[in-house]
Nucleic acid binder design. Structure first.
Length: 457
DNA sequence: TTAGGGTTAG
């Protein structure tokens, strides 16, 4: 329908532009203006809104758009359902995602390849790789034309479910059958291989990307930069940052966070401050992860007044603090020696409905030890339901620092038996401590047990 | 309409 030069197609373009930058109220206002001018919204208009509401607001708000859509006499189609299922998956609602899929079938709407892609992603997200694989096989056997995204989701899902070798095998098989990887395929593999510390294979994929016709993008650079920081090659990471800037890639919130976090971690606070200032002066809007990075910077400088002010700012801005936010505060307080403050915040975190947080408890263990209260750290350790290698290494190393080498030795053996990994430096500290305090035989026995644990692993 | 990068502990 056309009226005064405005058509439904044009209306939809406007709506899509506003939705893309999350200006949903403006999008709604344009619909009202359009109706006044006689432009009737169609299924595309409503689908754009459903997608935006489920992505940026909530699934409930998306349902209310569907209600309005039905009132206007427009029936939801496969795209409407795809948006809803994707939204339910993002909100970690597995059964709701599956119910929606079923509802779509019941309504006689045929799923398309995107529906199956979303469902596959959903199963991977909920740690059900077998179900995801079944969907993948169905897509391959069906008449549906598979899309490169199908393979990307499969490769990414296999990696996140700890099937990296299978993901690599699939990648190579697909290439043999003529699949031309997209940039996102390379980015997925580089990221996942780096996270699994399989540096050599990550470098191979990066080299293959370099040899392809594709140009790396800002995501590739951020991913590789993060890999360098993860493997403690800080200067190399900063070189990549310079290269990224010189090539004219826009430095976004992701890139700034990666750099600032690495600078803070290595104690280069002045540089971190400068980088953060640059972020703000470039007009980059801070999201929760960026705020958390800034909060960590304040805590590491002992600027708790600024940190608490920032917490207020975050919440006043309508963002909800997450487990990272609270853990950063707890860690910062522990590092500053304010154990009672950290305990108070841990309690506050539980009151807010957060589950027991292993990282926060590990911070407490280390903080208690550094404050000279190893016995309380031991008590906390015993009370913890789950412990990991960090818990063990931290406590063993601190026992050594306090000269309690026999206790450290006993605890370390128990941890190794439980399959925990202990840092080499910590093992050496225990052995050296036992020898220097005259427990030579015990040191010999421990060394033998360490070797046995290594063989049996 | 799908997939990929950033924030916490030893």
């Amino acid at each position: 329908m056309m009226f005064g030069g405005l058509s439904t197609k044009l209306l939809n373009i406007c709506i899509a532009s506003f939705c893309k930058v999350r200006l949903l109220e403006k999008a709604e206002a344009i619909i009202i203006d359009g109706i006044r001018l006689g432009v009737i919204p169609d299924v595309v208009t409503y689908n754009t809104l459903v997608s935006a509401y489920s992505r940026y607001v909530s699934l409930d708000s998306a349902y209310s758009v569907i209600h309005r859509m039905k009132e206007a006499g427009i029936s939801p189609n496969v795209i409407t359902y795809n948006s809803l299922i994707a939204g339910a998956t993002r909100d970690c609602l597995l059964s709701q995602s599956l119910d929606l899929f079923e509802e779509m079938l019941q309504a006689g709407i045929h799923p398309d390849v995107w529906s199956y892609n979303i469902l596959m992603n959903c199963f991977f997200k909920f740690g059900k790789p077998d179900e995801a694989n079944r969907i993948f096989q169905d897509i391959l056997l069906s008449n549906l034309a598979s899309h490169p995204a199908t393979f990307n989701i499969m490769i990414n899902g296999l990696c996140t479910n700890e099937y990296i070798d299978n993901a690599l095998m699939l990648f190579r098989n697909l290439q043999r059958h003529g699949f031309v990887p997209q940039l996102v395929t390379y980015n997925i593999l580089i990221n996942r291989l780096c996270k699994a510390r399989r540096w050599r294979q990550a470098r191979t994929i990066l080299r293959e990307l370099g040899e392809s016709d594709l140009e790396p993008n800002a995501i590739t650079y951020t991913t590789v930069m993060k890999c360098c920081f993860r493997s403690k090659q800080y200067d190399k990471g900063l070189d990549i940052m310079s290269e990224m800037k010189s090539k004219g890639y826009a430095f976004d919130s992701f890139a700034y966070c990666t750099v600032v976090a690495a600078l803070v971690k290595t104690g280069r606070i002045e540089e971190a401050n400068a980088c953060m200032e640059q972020t703000m002066s470039n007009g980059i809007e801070l999201d929760l992860a960026a705020y958390n990075t800034l909060l960590n910077m304040y805590c590491r400088q002992g600027k708790f007044e600024a940190a608490y002010k920032l917490l207020d700012e975050i919440e006043k801005g309508g963002l909800l603090c997450d487990k990272y936010t609270h853990t950063i505060i707890i860690d910062g307080l522990c590092k500053a020696g304010n154990i009672s403050g950290a305990q108070h915040h841990l309690h506050h975190m539980k009151m807010m409905g957060f589950h027991e947080n292993l990282v926060a408890l590990n911070c407490m263990i280390d903080g208690l030890c550094k404050a000279g209260d190893i016995d309380r750290a031991m008590e906390l350790y015993k009370s913890m339901e789950t412990k990991d290698s960090v818990t063990c290494t931290s406590l063993v190393h601190n026992l050594c620092r306090a000269g309690r080498f026999r206790c450290a030795s006993k605890l370390m053996m128990k941890c190794l038996k439980d399959g925990k990994k202990i840092l080499r430096a910590t093992k050496r500290a225990v052995l050296r401590g036992l020898r220097s305090s005259g427990y030579t035989d015990e040191a010999k026995k421990l060394q033998w047990k360490i070797q046995m644990a290594r063989i049996l692993r």
